[in-house]
Design a protein around this nucleic acid. Structure first.
Lengths: 110, 110
DNA sequence: CATAAGCGTTAGCCATGACTTACCGTAAGT
DNA sequence: ACTTACGGTAAGTCATGGCTAACGCTTATG
C-alpha cells in the first residue's frame, strides 16, 4: 500500500498554506528557489524546507541548472491524491444516497 | 472565492492523520461520536474537536438522533477538493509538457 | 423528578513544526 | 584564483494545534 501512504503524504504536505502557495506557483510555472522566495512573505531557507517536504510527497521534482534548482510539478503525488480522493468520492455518494433513503421525510430537495 | 477557500479548508483538515482516520471511518459508515472514539487511540472529546474541524471544512455533517449525533459524509467538501485537484492536475500535465520543451532550449525565465 | 447516557466546550499542557539567522558547499563569471 | 550568485543545512526560537481532564447541557428512561 505504498500508494496509499503517498496519498497521505500529499494531503499532509498541502495542509500547510505556505506550501500550497509554493505548490501553486510551481504549478503555474517551473521556478527556482530564490525566485519563489521573492514572491512570498517568508525567507529563502523556509521555501527550501517546504520544497523538501513537497519533494518527499512526490508533488515536485527538481532539475539542476548551474547553481540554480528548477522545481516543477511531479505528477505522481497528484495522481496518488487523485486516486485516493476518487475512491472516497464514490463512497461519499453511496453513503449520501443511503442516508437520504432513511431520511425521506422532511428533507428539502435541491 | 468561497469555493476556493472551502477547498483549502478541506486540504488542511485532512492534513491531520487522526482526522483522516475519522473521515475514513465516517466514509465507511455514518457513526456516532462515542462509537468513533472507541475505535481510535484518542479520547472522545478529541474526536469531537476533530469532527468540528471536519464539519467546518464541509467534509461531514451531523444529524441528531436523541442524545446521539450521527456524523455522515458531506459531498460538498469532497467536491471542492476534487475540483481544486482536477484543475491542478490539468496544470500539472501542461507544465510538465512545457518544461520538457524548455529543457531542449536551455532557456532560463525572467 | 431523578438518574443515566451521549456530546460539546473549556482550560491547560506539551509536542510538533514553521520560521529566521548563520554557515557551508558548489557553480559560473571576471 | 577570487568573487559572486544560488541554494541546502543546522541550530534555536516561538506559535500553532492536538490532546486530556473536568464540567455542563440535552435527551431518554426509570
Amino acid at each position: 500500500m505504498a500508494n496509499a501512504y503517498a496519498a497521505l503524504d500529499s494531503l499532509a504536505a498541502l495542509g500547510d498554506p505556505t506550501r500550497r502557495a509554493i505548490f501553486e506557483r510551481v504549478a503555474a510555472r517551473p521556478s527556482a528557489v530564490g525566485e519563489l522566495a521573492r514572491g512570498l512573505p517568508v525567507s529563502r531557507p523556509a521555501v527550501s524546507q517546504h520544497l523538501r517536504v513537497l519533494k518527499q510527497a512526490r508533488l515536485v521534482r527538481e532539475t539542476r541548472a548551474g547553481t540554480r534548482r528548477i522545481y516543477h510539478l511531479d505528477p505522481r503525488g497528484i495522481a496518488a491524491m487523485r486516486d485516493w480522493l476518487e475512491a472516497h468520492w464514490a463512497a461519499a455518494l453511496d453513503a449520501f444516497r443511503n442516508f437520504a433513503d432513511t431520511q425521506t421525510n422532511q428533507e428539502k430537495p435541491k
